[in-house]
Design a protein around this nucleic acid. Sequence first.
DNA 1: ATCTAACATTAGAACAATTCTAAGTCAAGA
DNA 2: TCTTGACTTAGAATTGTTCTAATGTTAGAT
Lengths: 139, 139
Amino acid sequence: MNLNEKLTELNEKGCTLTIQRHAVLEYLYENRTHPTVEKIYYSLKEKFSTISKATVYNTLELLKNYGLIQEITIEKGKLHFDYEVKPHHHFFCHRCNHVYDVDVVGCPLAGKKMIDGHKIEEMRPYIIGTCSKCLKKKG
Amino acid sequence: MNLNEKLTELNEKGCTLTIQRHAVLEYLYENRTHPTVEKIYYSLKEKFSTISKATVYNTLELLKNYGLIQEITIEKGKLHFDYEVKPHHHFFCHRCNHVYDVDVVGCPLAGKKMIDGHKIEEMRPYIIGTCSKCLKKKG
DNA sequence: ATCTAACATTAGAACAATTCTAAGTCAAGA
DNA sequence: TCTTGACTTAGAATTGTTCTAATGTTAGAT
């Protein structure tokens, strides 16, 4: 789903399309590195010097609630965000703190709506380890 | 793996078995509710009134590094811990903030050591939604 | 085009979770 | 007993997130 499709969807659902909301979504569209809130905030500050942290947090929460972006709680104590909402796994390298996308096929939970009587609304399959780049550094 | 086995393993690996470390591990052994650090700290305070937060954090980190307990980053901004380290999924209810164990068989990642050139050290399969108890409350 | 009410943004304070620090305690070996 | 190193403590500091009150913006009604 490209940027314009998401912006249109937001608009059609009655959400005001402010310059800040546009900027946050566009930033995530252009930066598929699973940035933290801090990273998003300081990057946007370069273009929009008066943007506030509260707006960034509010906007990320809003976009998440519209199902247009994904929140990632893989790193202890800080949030990352992902433009891509299609189900996929995330790999976190505890050496460089980088989040990678990984594709895993054949997940038995795919498409399931319920488990043990609980209603499934979101999947967050996280994998922790050392990434290929950091493995090379070591040796 | 029962409590004594874990304590013995700690000891054999040369780790000093202080009363605080014993207490933290025992608390997790007896409370399989995936408690937060705050919960662990205040519960232990009742028995050991001078135990400090730093010790609880240090001990949880130490036990985690020995592979004896599992850290859970399913809830935004706060840590939960689990005595059980055998691979299993966690379900988080965003209404009551409770963490449940769920068994999922047939995970294609089970036993895998590598993915996309990254070294897998830990799996954290999280599922978010509304738990069976909260579903009943609603209606 | 103007008004207005609802909504959005801002700056910074407040809050919550975690980590750090420096002083004190404890245990084991010389 | 003294020393050394490891552990714990209390509280300060830091970090990440949320709240607040004032200000700014928008869309719809007139």
